[in-house]
Protein backbone atom coordinates (compact mmCIF):
# COMPACT_ATOMS: atom_id res chain seq x y z
CA UNK A 1 0.00 0.00 0.00
CA UNK A 2 2.81 2.41 0.95
CA UNK A 3 4.59 1.49 -2.27
CA UNK A 4 1.41 2.18 -4.24
CA UNK A 5 0.95 5.64 -2.70
CA UNK A 6 4.60 6.56 -3.23
CA UNK A 7 4.45 5.51 -6.87
CA UNK A 8 1.27 7.50 -7.43
CA UNK A 9 2.75 10.62 -5.82
CA UNK A 10 5.85 10.38 -8.03
CA UNK A 11 3.65 10.02 -11.09
CA UNK A 12 2.11 13.40 -10.21
CA UNK A 13 5.29 15.31 -10.99
CA UNK A 14 5.46 14.90 -14.80
CA UNK A 15 1.69 15.43 -15.00
CA UNK A 16 1.97 18.69 -13.08
CA UNK A 17 4.76 19.94 -15.35
CA UNK A 18 2.64 19.18 -18.43
CA UNK A 19 -0.37 20.89 -16.91
CA UNK A 20 1.64 24.01 -16.08
CA UNK A 21 2.77 24.28 -19.71
CA UNK A 22 -0.76 23.74 -20.99
CA UNK A 23 -2.35 26.23 -18.59
CA UNK A 24 0.21 28.89 -19.51
CA UNK A 25 -0.19 28.24 -23.23
CA UNK A 26 -3.99 28.30 -23.12
CA UNK A 27 -3.98 31.81 -21.69
CA UNK A 28 -1.66 32.91 -24.50
CA UNK A 29 -3.79 31.33 -27.22
CA UNK A 30 -6.39 34.07 -27.84
CA UNK A 31 -5.04 36.80 -30.11
CA UNK A 32 -3.49 39.70 -28.27
CA UNK A 33 -2.53 40.06 -24.66
CA UNK A 34 -3.40 42.11 -21.60
CA UNK A 35 -2.04 45.29 -23.13
CA UNK A 36 -4.11 44.83 -26.30
CA UNK A 37 -7.23 44.36 -24.18
CA UNK A 38 -6.27 47.33 -22.03
CA UNK A 39 -5.69 49.55 -25.07
CA UNK A 40 -8.95 48.42 -26.64
CA UNK A 41 -10.82 49.26 -23.42
CA UNK A 42 -9.21 52.69 -23.30
CA UNK A 43 -10.04 53.27 -26.96
CA UNK A 44 -13.64 52.38 -26.24
CA UNK A 45 -13.58 55.00 -23.51
CA UNK A 46 -12.24 57.54 -26.00
CA UNK A 47 -8.60 57.60 -24.90
CA UNK A 48 -5.71 56.94 -27.21
CA UNK A 49 -2.24 55.61 -26.26
CA UNK A 50 0.86 56.36 -28.32
CA UNK A 51 3.09 53.63 -29.76
CA UNK A 52 5.80 54.41 -27.20
CA UNK A 53 3.40 54.15 -24.33
CA UNK A 54 2.19 50.73 -25.53
CA UNK A 55 5.77 49.47 -25.94
CA UNK A 56 6.61 50.79 -22.46
CA UNK A 57 3.57 49.00 -21.04
CA UNK A 58 4.57 45.72 -22.73
CA UNK A 59 8.07 46.03 -21.34
CA UNK A 60 6.65 46.82 -17.90
CA UNK A 61 4.64 43.60 -17.85
CA UNK A 62 7.37 41.56 -19.54
CA UNK A 63 5.07 40.82 -22.48
CA UNK A 64 7.70 41.74 -25.07
CA UNK A 65 9.71 38.63 -24.21
CA UNK A 66 9.18 35.31 -26.00
CA UNK A 67 6.51 33.01 -24.51
CA UNK A 68 8.86 30.33 -23.18
CA UNK A 69 10.90 32.86 -21.21
CA UNK A 70 7.73 34.22 -19.68
CA UNK A 71 6.77 30.65 -18.80
CA UNK A 72 10.12 29.78 -17.23
CA UNK A 73 10.07 33.00 -15.18
CA UNK A 74 6.54 32.35 -14.02
CA UNK A 75 6.97 28.65 -13.14
CA UNK A 76 10.27 29.26 -11.30
CA UNK A 77 8.58 31.84 -9.13
CA UNK A 78 5.44 29.71 -8.84
CA UNK A 79 7.18 26.73 -7.25
CA UNK A 80 8.79 29.17 -4.80
CA UNK A 81 5.33 30.38 -3.86
CA UNK A 82 5.31 33.63 -5.82
CA UNK A 83 2.59 33.64 -8.43
CA UNK A 84 3.50 36.95 -10.01
CA UNK A 85 1.53 40.14 -10.44
CA UNK A 86 -2.02 40.62 -11.57
CA UNK A 87 -2.08 43.25 -14.32
CA UNK A 88 -5.71 44.08 -13.84
CA UNK A 89 -5.68 44.45 -10.06
CA UNK A 90 -2.07 45.62 -9.96
CA UNK A 91 -1.57 43.45 -6.90
CA UNK A 92 0.37 40.22 -6.22
CA UNK A 93 -1.65 37.18 -7.27
CA UNK A 94 -0.86 35.53 -3.91
CA UNK A 95 -2.69 38.19 -1.97
CA UNK A 96 -5.62 38.22 -4.42
CA UNK A 97 -6.16 34.48 -4.31
CA UNK A 98 -5.27 33.71 -0.69
CA UNK A 99 -8.47 34.45 1.19
CA UNK A 100 -10.74 33.58 -1.72
CA UNK A 101 -9.13 30.20 -2.12
CA UNK A 102 -9.61 29.45 1.56
CA UNK A 103 -13.25 30.53 1.45
CA UNK A 104 -13.80 28.47 -1.70
CA UNK A 105 -12.29 25.41 -0.13
CA UNK A 106 -14.37 25.80 3.03
CA UNK A 107 -17.47 26.13 0.88
CA UNK A 108 -16.51 23.14 -1.27
CA UNK A 109 -15.94 21.07 1.85
CA UNK A 110 -19.37 21.89 3.24
CA UNK A 111 -20.95 21.33 -0.17
CA UNK A 112 -19.35 17.87 -0.40
CA UNK A 113 -20.53 17.10 3.12
CA UNK A 114 -24.03 18.27 2.25
CA UNK A 115 -24.13 16.28 -1.00
CA UNK A 116 -23.04 13.00 0.59
CA UNK A 117 -25.04 13.44 3.79
CA UNK A 118 -28.18 13.90 1.71
CA UNK A 119 -27.54 11.69 -1.29
CA UNK A 120 -26.14 8.48 0.20
CA UNK A 121 -28.98 7.72 2.65
CA UNK A 122 -31.62 8.77 0.11
CA UNK A 123 -29.98 6.70 -2.63
CA UNK A 124 -29.87 3.61 -0.42
CA UNK A 125 -33.47 4.11 0.68
CA UNK A 126 -34.62 4.55 -2.92
CA UNK A 127 -32.88 1.33 -3.93
CA UNK A 128 -34.10 -0.77 -1.02
CA UNK A 129 -37.65 0.51 -1.44
CA UNK A 130 -37.57 0.59 -5.23
CA UNK A 131 -40.81 1.81 -6.85
CA UNK A 132 -42.23 2.89 -3.50
CA UNK A 133 -43.94 6.27 -3.19
CA UNK A 134 -40.85 7.76 -1.48
CA UNK A 135 -38.64 6.44 -4.29
CA UNK A 136 -40.82 8.16 -6.89
CA UNK A 137 -40.84 11.41 -4.90
CA UNK A 138 -37.04 11.40 -4.49
CA UNK A 139 -36.57 10.54 -8.15
CA UNK A 140 -38.88 13.37 -9.22
CA UNK A 141 -37.27 15.94 -6.92
CA UNK A 142 -33.87 14.65 -7.99
CA UNK A 143 -34.57 15.15 -11.68
CA UNK A 144 -35.78 18.68 -11.03
CA UNK A 145 -32.62 19.32 -9.03
CA UNK A 146 -30.51 17.99 -11.88
CA UNK A 147 -32.35 19.92 -14.56
CA UNK A 148 -32.46 23.31 -12.84
CA UNK A 149 -29.39 25.42 -13.54
CA UNK A 150 -27.73 26.42 -10.27
CA UNK A 151 -27.63 30.12 -11.11
CA UNK A 152 -31.40 30.08 -11.68
CA UNK A 153 -31.83 28.47 -8.28
CA UNK A 154 -29.63 31.24 -6.85
CA UNK A 155 -31.81 33.91 -8.48
CA UNK A 156 -34.96 32.29 -7.11
CA UNK A 157 -33.49 32.15 -3.61
CA UNK A 158 -32.42 35.81 -3.83
CA UNK A 159 -35.90 36.77 -4.98
CA UNK A 160 -37.46 34.86 -2.11
CA UNK A 161 -34.91 36.33 0.30
CA UNK A 162 -35.76 39.87 -0.62
CA UNK A 163 -39.52 39.42 -1.03
CA UNK A 164 -40.19 37.25 2.01
CA UNK A 165 -37.42 38.03 4.47
CA UNK A 166 -36.54 41.50 3.26
CA UNK A 167 -32.87 40.57 3.34
CA UNK A 168 -30.33 40.05 0.61
CA UNK A 169 -29.28 36.46 0.17
CA UNK A 170 -26.01 37.45 -1.47
CA UNK A 171 -22.50 37.50 -0.08
CA UNK A 172 -20.80 35.43 2.55
CA UNK A 173 -20.62 38.09 5.26
CA UNK A 174 -22.82 40.71 6.84
CA UNK A 175 -21.78 44.28 6.09
CA UNK A 176 -20.23 44.85 9.50
CA UNK A 177 -17.88 41.86 9.10
CA UNK A 178 -16.96 42.51 5.48
CA UNK A 179 -13.59 44.10 6.16
CA UNK A 180 -13.23 42.98 9.76
CA UNK A 181 -10.37 40.84 11.02
CA UNK A 182 -11.03 37.13 11.44
CA UNK A 183 -12.76 36.32 14.73
CA UNK A 184 -15.15 33.73 16.15
CA UNK A 185 -18.00 36.12 15.45
CA UNK A 186 -16.91 36.51 11.82
CA UNK A 187 -16.68 32.73 11.34
CA UNK A 188 -20.16 32.34 12.83
CA UNK A 189 -21.44 35.06 10.54
CA UNK A 190 -19.89 33.29 7.56
CA UNK A 191 -21.48 29.96 8.49
CA UNK A 192 -24.86 31.67 8.77
CA UNK A 193 -24.48 32.94 5.21
CA UNK A 194 -22.86 29.88 3.79
CA UNK A 195 -25.68 27.34 4.02
CA UNK A 196 -27.58 28.97 1.18
CA UNK A 197 -24.83 28.79 -1.48
CA UNK A 198 -23.96 25.33 -0.16
CA UNK A 199 -27.52 24.15 -0.76
CA UNK A 200 -27.69 25.83 -4.17
CA UNK A 201 -24.36 24.53 -5.39
CA UNK A 202 -25.00 21.12 -3.85
CA UNK A 203 -28.43 20.52 -5.35
CA UNK A 204 -27.29 19.21 -8.72
CA UNK A 205 -24.54 17.16 -7.11
CA UNK A 206 -27.00 15.69 -4.62
CA UNK A 207 -29.46 14.79 -7.34
CA UNK A 208 -26.71 13.17 -9.42
CA UNK A 209 -25.26 11.27 -6.48
CA UNK A 210 -28.69 9.96 -5.49
CA UNK A 211 -29.02 8.50 -8.99
CA UNK A 212 -25.58 6.89 -8.82
CA UNK A 213 -26.10 5.54 -5.31
CA UNK A 214 -29.53 4.17 -6.18
CA UNK A 215 -28.32 2.52 -9.37
CA UNK A 216 -25.19 0.93 -7.87
CA UNK A 217 -27.07 -0.29 -4.80
CA UNK A 218 -29.80 -1.80 -6.98
CA UNK A 219 -27.10 -3.43 -9.03
CA UNK A 220 -25.51 -5.02 -5.97
CA UNK A 221 -28.72 -5.97 -4.13
CA UNK A 222 -29.44 -8.78 -6.59
CA UNK A 223 -25.92 -10.23 -6.48
CA UNK A 224 -25.37 -13.82 -5.29
CA UNK A 225 -23.21 -12.76 -2.34
CA UNK A 226 -26.16 -10.81 -0.94
CA UNK A 227 -28.25 -13.96 -1.20
CA UNK A 228 -25.49 -15.83 0.65
CA UNK A 229 -25.60 -13.23 3.41
CA UNK A 230 -29.38 -13.63 3.60
CA UNK A 231 -29.07 -17.41 3.70
CA UNK A 232 -26.93 -17.04 6.83
CA UNK A 233 -29.87 -15.52 8.71
CA UNK A 234 -28.55 -11.95 8.91
CA UNK A 235 -31.07 -9.24 9.66
CA UNK A 236 -32.22 -7.45 6.47
CA UNK A 237 -31.04 -3.97 7.44
CA UNK A 238 -27.72 -5.24 8.69
CA UNK A 239 -27.01 -7.28 5.58
CA UNK A 240 -27.96 -4.41 3.26
CA UNK A 241 -25.49 -2.06 4.93
CA UNK A 242 -22.73 -4.61 5.33
CA UNK A 243 -22.79 -6.13 1.84
CA UNK A 244 -24.45 -4.35 -1.13
CA UNK A 245 -24.12 -0.81 0.25
CA UNK A 246 -20.52 -1.40 1.22
CA UNK A 247 -19.73 -2.40 -2.36
CA UNK A 248 -21.97 0.27 -3.90
CA UNK A 249 -20.06 3.00 -2.06
CA UNK A 250 -16.90 2.26 -4.04
CA UNK A 251 -17.82 4.30 -7.15
CA UNK A 252 -18.94 7.16 -4.91
CA UNK A 253 -15.58 7.18 -3.17
CA UNK A 254 -13.72 6.92 -6.44
CA UNK A 255 -15.37 10.07 -7.76
CA UNK A 256 -14.73 12.28 -4.71
CA UNK A 257 -11.63 13.54 -6.49
CA UNK A 258 -13.58 14.60 -9.55
CA UNK A 259 -16.02 16.51 -7.36
CA UNK A 260 -13.40 18.83 -5.90
CA UNK A 261 -12.60 20.87 -9.05
CA UNK A 262 -16.17 20.39 -10.26
CA UNK A 263 -17.47 22.23 -7.25
CA UNK A 264 -14.78 24.92 -7.47
CA UNK A 265 -15.54 25.70 -11.10
CA UNK A 266 -19.27 25.04 -10.78
CA UNK A 267 -19.53 27.93 -8.37
CA UNK A 268 -18.60 30.58 -10.96
CA UNK A 269 -22.15 31.41 -12.06
CA UNK A 270 -23.68 31.02 -8.63
CA UNK A 271 -20.87 33.04 -7.08
CA UNK A 272 -21.43 35.83 -9.61
CA UNK A 273 -25.17 35.88 -8.93
CA UNK A 274 -24.82 35.65 -5.17
CA UNK A 275 -21.77 37.93 -5.10
CA UNK A 276 -19.63 35.40 -3.26
CA UNK A 277 -15.98 36.21 -2.54
CA UNK A 278 -14.79 32.88 -3.98
CA UNK A 279 -12.30 32.05 -6.71
CA UNK A 280 -14.91 31.58 -9.46
CA UNK A 281 -15.64 35.24 -10.30
CA UNK A 282 -11.94 36.10 -9.97
CA UNK A 283 -10.98 33.49 -12.57
CA UNK A 284 -13.77 34.63 -14.83
CA UNK A 285 -12.58 38.24 -14.75
CA UNK A 286 -8.93 37.21 -15.19
CA UNK A 287 -9.82 35.26 -18.32
CA UNK A 288 -11.91 38.13 -19.69
CA UNK A 289 -9.09 40.64 -19.34
CA UNK A 290 -6.28 38.22 -20.32
CA UNK A 291 -4.69 38.78 -16.94
CA UNK A 292 -1.85 36.37 -17.69
CA UNK A 293 -0.31 35.45 -14.34
CA UNK A 294 -3.53 35.50 -12.35
CA UNK A 295 -5.35 33.26 -14.83
CA UNK A 296 -2.44 30.84 -15.32
CA UNK A 297 -1.85 30.55 -11.59
CA UNK A 298 -5.49 29.88 -10.86
CA UNK A 299 -5.80 27.26 -13.58
CA UNK A 300 -2.62 25.70 -12.23
CA UNK A 301 -4.06 25.57 -8.71
CA UNK A 302 -7.37 24.11 -9.89
CA UNK A 303 -5.59 21.47 -11.97
CA UNK A 304 -3.36 20.55 -9.05
CA UNK A 305 -6.47 20.18 -6.90
CA UNK A 306 -7.94 17.83 -9.50
CA UNK A 307 -4.81 15.72 -9.45
CA UNK A 308 -4.70 15.62 -5.68
CA UNK A 309 -8.40 14.77 -5.63
CA UNK A 310 -7.89 11.92 -8.07
CA UNK A 311 -4.98 10.65 -6.00
CA UNK A 312 -7.10 10.74 -2.84
CA UNK A 313 -9.87 8.87 -4.66
CA UNK A 314 -7.52 6.19 -5.93
CA UNK A 315 -5.98 5.66 -2.52
CA UNK A 316 -9.45 5.48 -0.94
CA UNK A 317 -10.60 3.01 -3.57
CA UNK A 318 -7.55 0.80 -3.07
CA UNK A 319 -8.19 0.99 0.64
CA UNK A 320 -11.84 -0.11 0.44
CA UNK A 321 -11.64 -2.58 -2.44
CA UNK A 322 -9.28 -5.53 -2.08
CA UNK A 323 -9.75 -6.43 -5.76
CA UNK A 324 -7.91 -3.22 -6.66
CA UNK A 325 -5.46 -3.41 -3.77
CA UNK A 326 -4.26 -6.87 -4.72
CA UNK A 327 -5.06 -6.58 -8.40
CA UNK A 328 -1.46 -6.43 -9.58
CA UNK A 329 -0.28 -9.51 -7.74
CA UNK A 330 -2.57 -11.81 -9.70
CA UNK A 331 -4.64 -14.65 -8.33
CA UNK A 332 -3.61 -17.99 -6.96
Amino acid sequence: MREYILRRVLQLIPTLILISIVSFTIIQLPPGDYVTTYVANLAAAGEELSEEEIVALEAHYGLNQPGYIQYVKWITNFVQGDMGLSFYWDRPVNRLIGERLMLTMIMSFFTLLFVYAMAIPIGIYSAVRQYSLADYVFTFVGFIGLATPNFLLALIFMYIGIKVFGASAGGLFSTEYLDAEWSIAKVWDMLKHMWLPVVIVGTAGTAGTIRVMRATTLDEIGRPYVETARSKGLREGQLTMKYPVRVALNPILSTIGWRLPEIVSGTVLVALVLNLPTTGPLLWRALMSQDLYLAASMIMILSSLTLVGTLISDILLAWVDPRIRYGERGTT
Binding site: P224, Y225, T228, R246, V247, D321, R323
Partner: peptide
Protein backbone atom coordinates in the same frame (compact mmCIF):
# COMPACT_ATOMS: atom_id res chain seq x y z
CA UNK B 1 -24.23 -22.10 -8.34
CA UNK B 2 -21.62 -19.36 -8.72
CA UNK B 3 -19.19 -19.92 -5.86
CA UNK B 4 -17.03 -16.86 -6.41
CA UNK B 5 -19.92 -14.48 -6.93
CA UNK B 6 -21.55 -15.94 -3.84
CA UNK B 7 -18.75 -14.66 -1.65
CA UNK B 8 -18.47 -10.98 -0.87
CA UNK B 9 -15.75 -9.34 -2.98
CA UNK B 10 -14.70 -6.99 -0.20
Amino acid sequence: QEPRASLSPV
